[in-house]
């Protein structure tokens, strides 16, 4: 029994090695097929890496989601200080800072260049503002309810969320992720078709061998085995090549990305796909290769009879 099992294993090993041998013996055809497959795999992988990196990069800013509570014009500075400490005392708030009307005016005068025009005003048109930073654990819903709570205060004119752009940006990322899924699906089908067609040609090339094998009692499973391994080899090598392509592209992007990040005061570093992702990519490549050759053999092998 163990002899049978080991010979079964030896047979698989033999199919594995001989299918690799077939690929090596026609290097040009193999390489051309590989390049097409690798590009088809590299595109979604590159997109995935882009989305993930963007998320990491913007993760730095999510802490900056805050809100500004604009107080009514008639609220005194003393009352504003009192309100600020009341806000600061809440558990869903990590920081609250009062920007008085005078401070705001001074800052505006300095930064805007409207100094002379402002001098013409008799009163300070700006209100006091409380800059509120929600607790870091706050959910978007929590932030929203805090906003509603502060709006309800009689001294508060209006509460503005600073995070609108983050929301929009996250929505864009959401679209990108969906694009990624669609592209990955379509390109995956492409990979299956490429492997299927390559295996089909291989089957036609080895027609005589298949006929003789069936003639001496080879089962369909036996005849099929080397082709399935060929498909898996293609998938494995295409996955590796795709990873190299993406890693190379990221290397080329690393410099510009670093200067972009530092321009935003971020210490973000472009990450290449992790080993786990490489493993997943190879698994996907092998599965697609196997599936493509499975279809080709299912369609074409039974047509070849001695």
């Amino acid at each position: 029994m163990s002899g049978r099992i080991s010979s079964w294993g030896a047979r698989h090993l033999q199919a594995l090695v001989s299918s690799a041998g077939h690929l090596v013996r026609s290097p040009l055809a193999t390489i051309l097929t590989l390049i097409v497959m690798a590009l088809a795999l590299a595109l979604p992988l590159g997109l995935l890496t882009l989305v993930q990196n963007t998320r990491t990069a913007t993760g730095d800013f999510s802490g900056a989601i805050g809100m500004s509570a604009f107080l009514k014009q008639d609220v005194t500075e003393a009352k504003a200080r009192q309100l600020t400490s009341a806000v600061r005392g809440r558990s869903d708030v990590s920081a609250a800072q009062l920007i008085t009307a005078d401070q705001a005016l001074a800052e505006f005068r300095k930064d805007s260049g409207f100094g002379v025009a402002l001098d013409a005003l008799q009163d300070n048109p700006l209100p006091h503002v409380i800059a509120v930073t929600p607790a870091s654990a706050a959910t978007p819903a929590g932030v929203e309810s805090l906003q509603r709570y502060l709006s309800a205060w009689p001294e508060v004119e209006n509460v503005q969320l600073d995070s609108d752009w983050v929301t929009r940006f996250n929505a864009i990322l959401g679209v990108l992720r969906r694009v990624l899924v669609v592209a990955a699906t379509l390109l995956g089908i492409g990979v299956v078709a490429i492997v299927g067609n390559t295996i089909r040609l291989e089957i036609l090339n080895r027609r005589a061998e298949i006929e003789v094998t069936k003639l001496v009692g080879g089962t369909n499973a036996f005849v099929r085995r080397p082709f399935l391994y060929t498909g898996m080899w293609y998938g494995l090598m295409a996955g590796l090549t795709a990873w190299l392509i993406v890693a190379g592209a990221l290397r080329a992007l690393a410099g510009p990305a670093a200067s972009l990040a530092s321009a935003y005061g971020s210490r973000f570093v472009l990450a290449i796909p992790s080993l786990g992702e490489l493993g997943l990519l190879l698994l996907v490549g092998i599965s697609l290769g196997w599936f493509g050759s499975w279809i080709a053999t299912a369609v074409h092998l039974h047509r070849i009879e001695p």
């Binding site: 010979s7 079964w8 089962t219």
Partner: peptide, 10 residues
């Protein structure tokens, strides 16, 4: 070949 397809031992 006929022995290989019949899974005979090496």
């Amino acid at each position: 070949l006929p022995l290989i397809v019949a899974d005979s031992s090496l």
